[in-house]
Design a protein around this nucleic acid. Structure first.
Lengths: 226, 226
DNA sequence: ATAATAGTGTCTCTGAGACATTATGAC
DNA sequence: GTCATAATGTCTCAGAGACACTATTAT
């Protein structure tokens, strides 16, 4: 029970930040700092060390790391995924990385020369540093799974959206067509969407009703207990 | 991106080990070492530092820590719960603890003077060190939730069990009566149980068929996608 | 036979999915 | 009017739950 007799593991956070681009889930990769001891200049998940002098907890560390990589004004969805660990996952030594899933509305994505967005079909062909391929795989599964029984996908929208737009996002994430009728029934029964009275999305067809989310956090469909 | 400019956080693992005693979920608490710098002599979740010289990953650390506390021959169920972190959760400083959920068959529980089993109704009345009350709360929710849509509760059995016994364990965990007929339909439809031909549990009533688990890991009920 | 638990069958209700139909805008 | 998409309605089917019924042992 004495901390001093063992070399302390390296402790980092990594973030799998999702958005939707061109009807596909995309993930943010960032170019590793030239001063980094390992994989410098390569693209990897955005991540970094915990700053014990300024972060109050790991969520805070994750947000700080993300803000160092990209600009975002709108608040993002953030959820802890899993701790990845082992004596061999990092060439520098015994390492633990707490991975997070995050979602940013596609209307808010910014970019710069140190980051790039990569679709999840492309990313599986890349050979990323550390166990970042495995982390991404698990993050995608998590997002898919949660989307199948919750309204998580609303976090891909900034504020207003139509039910058809929301359905399309579900279809992109779940990679399957959904029935319009039952989709709408499920969503509306949740009672988490507020109809924006008199507000419509105009196009070259019938205008669609705009909705926004109540300030309720990720409720579940009834299929799950509780 | 330089590790050395920040004081490294304290990194530990904590385990919420469940079993069932007297028709209630129980959790293992262990007496903290007299040499421990904080809360020494108090009861807390079993936990400890990662030993970078002998552990290969965090699962390994968790198992080692548990083995230091109690004897167990039979393999146990172990699953990562969540990383708990913050500048204030440990009086020694910025700390991260990776919490695990674990299950041991109630036929296998051993005990000694440094550990005690406490029912989850009792434990909520205790004021445990660190954020251990919060960790336990989340662990209980996780076990309850998973039990509602998976066959996780089989891990409370060593090998053979009857469907009635299994149902009783579900009822203890979920804190509600289940319908015998639909319970059996759900379980049998999963196809994960093997009927032990000719083996029955005898009592003062009609003998019950004994089953065992296929070497399948925690499948889900259909209600969840995938 | 009775008690007690094991195990099965039947009915109903609900919710999801398939699919058809109606509604409302632009042109 | 046509076209495209929004929105709603109808039908069927499957699974869960309520509950009744049958089966098999000990005594």
């Amino acid at each position: 029970m004495d901390n001093n007799q063992f070399k302390s593991p390296i402790l980092t956070v990594d973030i799998v930040l999702f958005t939707i681009i061109d009807k596909e889930l995309n993930i943010l990769l960032s170019k590793r700092d030239s001063g980094s001891k390992v994989f410098s200049g390569d693209f990897s998940l955005p991540g970094g060390f915990v700053h014990t002098n300024e972060d109050v907890n790991l969520v805070n560390s994750a947000i700080r790391v993300l803000k160092e990589k990209i600009d975002f004004r709108h608040s993002i969805y953030l959820e802890q995924l899993e701790a990845f660990s082992g004596v061999n996952r990092d060439p520098r030594g015994w390492s633990v990385s707490i991975a997070f899933c995050a979602i940013i509305p596609f209307s808010e994505v910014s970019t710069n020369e140190n980051v790039k967005w990569v679709s999840i079909s492309e990313v599986s062909g890349l050979n990323l540093p550390f166990d970042h391929n495995e982390i991404i795989e698990k993050a995608v599964l998590r997002i898919r799974n949660k989307s199948s029984y919750s309204i998580l996908p609303i976090y891909f929208f900034k504020d207003k959206f139509t039910l058809s737009e929301l359905q399309k996002v579900y279809e992109v994430i779940l990679q399957q067509k959904l029935d319009k009728s039952s989709f709408r029934k499920r969503i509306e029964d949740l009672g988490v969407l507020t109809l924006l009275e008199g507000e419509y999305k105009l196009g070259s067809q019938r205008p669609a009703q705009l909705y926004t989310i109540n300030n309720v956090k990720t409720p579940w469909f009834k299929s799950n207990l509780n």
